[in-house]
């Protein structure tokens, strides 16, 4: 899963190869984002905000204006920029810890206000940057540094259904999807649609990306991709969850099956 030799035009060549671990999903999400920026030809209008988490490594990733923010605070920084200059296209990039734990109030409120920003959240089922602790997205039974015997849903809760929540609390006009680095084409398409949704001024757009962290998962190539495709998808449905349609009444478009069970 190394980065393909063809780089998106919006990438900064001089800062490559990038600093993510081999096999990390962050690079794939950022590739899809780079392609979307290229296809939309918006390099001169994008402001990219990266959270603290492994996403911080992307602070010099693109040839676009970039602000590294604090852990969990990317959504408000993007909101402030967008409110001050609505011509800019503000794309916040964060981890599952940043978006769903420490910054959850910002995600919820940006969503309920239907902020015209795009949030891209990388779900790698734990805290990558700090060495693999439990995140709100950690799967039941999954071992992390702070759940060494496996995540116990009774005491620590159930995997966070972020996009479903965002879909439930946004008004019509929001765009919400869950993509996966295992499927690069829809990944790019969802990100592109999310940005287009901001550009057309519809509302909040949000894409969660199922991603990989072989370093903390301690998995080899095959195990890594299997974990995303077979284990994470037990809890996380991939697909578009809410697309703007002015004819539709407010509400969520897909009903969510809630799978149960754990992994070893």
């Amino acid at each position: 899963m190394s980065v393909q030799p063809t780089m998106p035009k919006s990438w900064r060549v001089d800062t490559k190869p990038h600093k993510f671990c081999p096999g990390c999903g962050h690079g794939l999400v950022l590739k899809a984002l780079g392609q979307a920026i290229d296809e939309l030809d918006i390099q001169d209008r994008v402001v990219f905000g990266c959270d603290i988490g492994c996403s911080l490594l992307a602070w010099d990733f693109f040839n676009v204006d970039t602000v590294q923010t604090h852990h969990g605070r990317t959504n408000p920084v993007m909101t402030g920029i967008k409110r001050a200059n609505p011509d800019l296209i503000c794309i916040g990039y964060m981890g599952d810890g940043g978006g769903y734990a420490i910054g959850s109030q910002h995600l919820v409120n940006a969503a309920t206000r239907n902020e015209r920003i795009t949030a891209i959240l990388v779900n790698n089922a734990q805290y990558g940057m700090t060495g693999g602790q439990m995140a709100p997205t950690t799967l039941p039974g999954m071992k992390t540094e702070t759940t060494p015997y496996g995540r116990d849903v009774d005491s620590t809760g159930y995997p966070c259904q972020g996009p479903e929540m965002v879909a439930a609390i946004t008004r019509e006009g929001a765009y919400v999807a869950r993509a996966s680095v295992a499927r690069p084409v829809p990944l790019k398409n969802y990100i592109k649609r999310a940005i287009e949704n901001q550009m057309s001024g519809n509302g909040f757009s949000f894409v969660e990306c199922l991603s990989t962290c072989p370093t903390n998962w301690r998995t080899n190539n095959v195990e890594t991709i299997n974990f995303v495709e077979k284990e994470m998808t037990k809890y996380y449905n991939v697909g578009e969850i809410k697309v703007p349609d002015p004819k539709e009444p407010l509400g969520i478009k897909t009903s969510i099956k809630v799978p149960t069970g754990g992994i070893g």
């Binding site: 923010t69 605070r73 920084v77 909101t79 402030g80 200059n85």
Partner: peptide, 12 residues
């Protein structure tokens, strides 16, 4: 959030 959006405002 008030502080971070203010940061965003001046950045813009």
């Amino acid at each position: 959030s008030a502080g971070f959006t203010t940061n965003g405002g001046v950045l813009a």
